[in-house]
């Protein structure tokens, strides 16, 4: 059974002119996917991640995660759904600047109501596991871009959501840091079976993704499954 399903999803932004961000996109991703959504600027990558992440609603079509139809879920319940089922990594790191690295990691479990001692222990273990223990009490402005983005990924996966959505996660990183970040995400994907979906136009990410979905003008133009499971493009 698919974890993430999009059926004929359409999204149009009305500005001075109508921009068709997604046009009838249909996709299905299995649990444990490590997928990249690639395409030029304006192809609909970010919009696709936004509708999958319950941050935006499609104009038409259906989006579901783990069998929950997000398009039919009332808006006030979507925040709770995101909290418990989806992790986010943003292009510009977007750690909360007043919190230290460990407090940023604690943020989501704290919202979920996890006891303080337990969430701190788990956050410390995770930082230790990826070799970032020494930055535990540093605030984002004291961290390098690579360190910030790795903390952002750890924040996204600490509570082990079903799916992590990463919007151009390597866009602001040099190739060394981008590679380190991808190593970490691959490891987490492999070990914790967390599904990762990236939007990217970084060749390094496209190369390392086990599934590569290409968008152009809001439509899927190719879907390459490198794990031999076959293409999942539905007409």
């Amino acid at each position: 059974m698919s974890l993430v399903e999009l059926e004929n999803v359409t999204k149009t932004y009305e500005d001075h002119v109508a921009v068709h961000a997604l046009r009838g996109v249909t996709l299905a991703l299995q649990p444990g996917s490590f997928a990249a959504v690639a395409g030029p600027s304006g192809s609909g990558k970010t919009t696709l991640l936004n509708v999958v992440g319950a941050l935006d609603r499609p104009d038409a079509g259906r989006v579901s995660i783990g069998g929950v139809d997000l398009t039919a879920t009332p808006p006030d319940l979507l925040a709770d759904f995101r909290l418990r089922h989806i992790g986010f990594v943003f292009q510009a790191y977007n750690l909360l600047p007043v919190l230290t690295a460990i407090e940023n990691l604690e943020f989501i479990p704290a919202l979920q109501g996890e006891p303080k001692e337990q969430r701190i222990r788990r956050a410390e273990e995770l930082l230790e596991a990826v070799g970032l223990a020494e930055i535990r009490d540093k605030r984002p402005n004291e961290l390098s871009g690579g360190q910030q983005q790795r903390v952002a990924v750890l924040r996204a996966i600490l509570t082990e959501p079903e799916v992590v959505l990463a919007d151009e996660p390597t866009a602001n990183l040099d190739s060394t840091n981008a590679s380190l970040l991808l190593d970490m995400m691959e490891k987490l994907n492999r070990e914790k079976k967390i599904t990762f979906i990236f939007s990217t136009h970084d060749p390094l990410v496209m190369e390392r993704a086990r599934r590569l979905i290409r968008l152009r003008d809001g439509m899927v133009v190719s879907d390459e499954n490198r794990e031999g499971r076959g293409a999942e493009v539905k007409p």
Partner: peptide, 12 residues
């Protein structure tokens, strides 16, 4: 932007 991130992460 910070509020946006917080809400995206599930802050009500």
């Amino acid at each position: 932007r910070e509020f946006g991130v917080m809400m995206a992460l599930g802050t009500k």
